[in-house]
């Protein structure tokens, strides 16, 4: 443990991936803006670099020359030492406005890492809540209701049956897309290696889907998938509604796991300040180091897990 009060050292250490809890109703862009704004404000409150020296000639006679702090380098003249836009910050994968939950950001040099994380296509786990009996124009409960229906005939068993058929259909498509027949030896060999990874980042794949809460008209399903996006999950709820011979609209989407990062690692809105961000950076570094098999294409220097070495690097 070491206490640091100099902003330049903190700035040099501010590299890596953090995991925040995105509130529902906030856009990714607004979240990013808040985060980098907080980082810049907090850094400016630490000991910043003093102004450079400047040679002042006080009088017209030449011998009177004084070296002093340059006014041109004063924070009052050139502005604060750290500005929000100085922080490079990019998300590992875009999350829609209505989605809440785990959201992974790369900061400064970590934005490269965030890119690698996206290319690794980790499995995401969502808790999606739907409400039966209504259908809306936006597929979520915020839109205008376009259709109403009954839902009393829908029982837990019917729901489970529909979800199982969706999961089976997705598994079948996965093998088809890999170009192997379901009943062949090649398919068997592909399956024993573990989860079948999609060849590209385009088409959403569901690995597992099950109902975890059923309280008509509301139901919650847990979806484990890759390549999904917000509108895909909304339409999934809509389709489930149709398949159980009713209608459904999505009332909340919560990401509970993003690859190795889960909800207990995520920073709540009131913890989006420098101290917590640094704690989270080292936590995420440890998690990524532990799961480096996921990031097989990533240079090992990016997922280095040695705090002492990092501190030395920042000092030199």
């Amino acid at each position: 443990m070491r206490y640091v009060s100099e902003a330049p050292i903190l700035w040099k250490l501010l590299n890596g991936v953090i995991c925040v809890y995105k509130p529902q109703g906030m856009t990714s862009r607004a979240l990013r803006q808040t985060l980098i704004g907080n980082i810049a404000n907090d850094l400016n409150e630490f000991e910043c670099r003093p102004p450079n020296n400047h040679v002042f000639s006080r009088n017209s006679s030449e011998s009177q020359v004084v070296v002093g702090q340059s006014f041109a380098d004063d924070p009052l003249v050139v502005g604060p030492r750290y500005l929000p836009n100085d922080v490079r910050c990019s998300w590992a994968s875009h999350v829609g406005r209505r989605t809440s939950g785990v959201f992974v950001f790369g900061i400064n040099k970590g934005s490269v890492l965030a890119n690698h994380l996206r290319n690794a296509r980790p499995i995401r786990v969502y808790h999606v809540t739907g409400r039966m009996g209504i259908a809306t124009d936006t597929y979520d409960t915020y839109g205008a209701v376009v259709e109403r229906s009954t839902f009393h005939h829908v029982k837990r068993t019917i729901m489970d049956r529909v979800l199982a058929s969706i999961q089976a259909a997705h598994q079948k498509t996965m093998f088809n897309r890999m170009g192997v027949h379901m009943h062949s030896q090649a398919a068997y060999e592909l399956a024993v290696k573990g989860n079948v990874r999609p060849p590209d980042g385009k088409i959403p794949f569901i690995y597992s889907i099950k109902c975890i809460e059923f309280d008509p008209p509301d139901f919650t399903i847990e979806v484990k998938c890759v390549n999904e996006h917000e509108s895909y999950l909304k339409t999934l709820v809509h389709d489930i509604g149709m398949k159980v011979h009713s209608t459904a609209a999505c009332s909340s989407i919560r990401c509970v796991r993003y690859g190795p990062f889960s909800i207990e690692h995520a920073l709540l809105r009131r913890h989006w300040h420098l101290q917590c961000i640094f704690d989270n950076l080292s936590l995420c570094r440890r998690i990524l180091h532990k799961n480096r098999i996921l990031m097989c294409d990533t240079p090992s220097s990016l997922i280095e897990n040695d705090d002492k070495k990092l501190l030395e690097c920042s000092k030199s």
Partner: peptide, 15 residues
């Protein structure tokens, strides 16, 4: 202002 401030007494007073 940064370009002028080291030469201008007025700006320095303001700072």
């Amino acid at each position: 202002f940064a370009a002028y401030v080291n030469d201008s007494q007025s700006l320095q007073e303001l700072v």
